[in-house]
């Protein structure tokens, strides 16, 4: 699995953790993590290049043409690097967008300070849960996100990027978990006194809809 390829080196340098974007647990987060590692490699190379160029400047004056610097390096070189980066970003972006493909839909309502989630059980009835979102594992899930009061942001770092919960709007985020298990989530947009403790969990299930014990259902 692609995720596994990433995790091995990551664990070595201590990048793992329940909220680590560098230990992805789903397709979307994996793609973004790859994007990061590639960009990091490029950034390291570019930084080294700049350091070398500046170090080489110390010494006797050189007969250097202006156009090499302003047009060659400044315009052409940077445009090539930047276009490639932008292209990669848009390509990944297109691949992880929510599509109209009949993915499972669940709902998330944020409030000061907590999360209320809704999924549909096998009878087609809505099931409300507090602070724990149930999703199927191994398939894309669309989360319809909104807020009851101020702006919050829905983020499960190991599954996908974040999306804001905005009062008066409903946003659609696509997440997916490769394997069943629990994934930690949090509110990423500052929302007042309870912001730091506005955590939740996502439980990915092998069977969908899940058979839940009664006590997790909201009245």
């Amino acid at each position: 699995m692609r995720g596994g390829v990433l995790i091995a080196p990551v664990a070595l340098i201590g990048c793992s953790g329940p909220l680590s974007t560098l230990q992805p647990g789903g397709a979307t987060a994996t793609e973004i993590a790859w994007l990061w590692w590639v960009m990091l490699a490029g950034a390291v190379a570019l930084t080294m290049m700049m350091v070398v160029l500046i170090a080489m400047a110390f010494g006797a004056p050189r007969d250097t043409g202006a156009r090499v610097w302003t047009h060659g390096m400044g315009l052409a070189f940077s445009l090539v690097v930047l276009s490639a980066t932008l292209g990669a970003g848009l390509w990944v972006g297109e691949r992880i967008l929510p599509r109209d493909d009949g993915a499972v839909e669940v709902r998330a309502r944020a409030f000061q300070w907590g999360w209320r989630f809704t999924h549909t059980d096998s009878d087609g009835n809505p099931v409300e849960t507090d602070g724990l979102l149930h999703i199927p594992a191994g398939q894309p899930v669309d989360v319809l996100i909104t807020s009851e009061d101020v702006i919050h942001s829905f983020w499960v770092p190991r599954l996908a990027g974040k999306l804001d919960a905005i009062p008066g709007r409903t946003n659609r985020a696509r997440i997916s978990a490769d394997a069943p298990g629990t994934y930690a989530g949090l509110c990423a947009e500052f929302c007042g006194l309870g912001h730091a403790r506005m955590r939740f969990d996502v439980q990915a299930h092998d069977t969908w809809p899940p058979a839940l014990p009664d006590e997790s259902e909201a009245p």
């Binding site: 974007t21 990061w36 570019l46 980066t85 970003g89 770092p157 990027g161 974040k162 947009e189």
Partner: peptide, 17 residues
């Protein structure tokens, strides 16, 4: 360079805030 990274939409979704 990190600014260029943040300009890339999918990465921004993870790194934002």
């Amino acid at each position: 360079l990190t600014g260029v990274m943040l300009a890339i939409v999918p990465f921004n979704w993870q790194a934002h805030d």
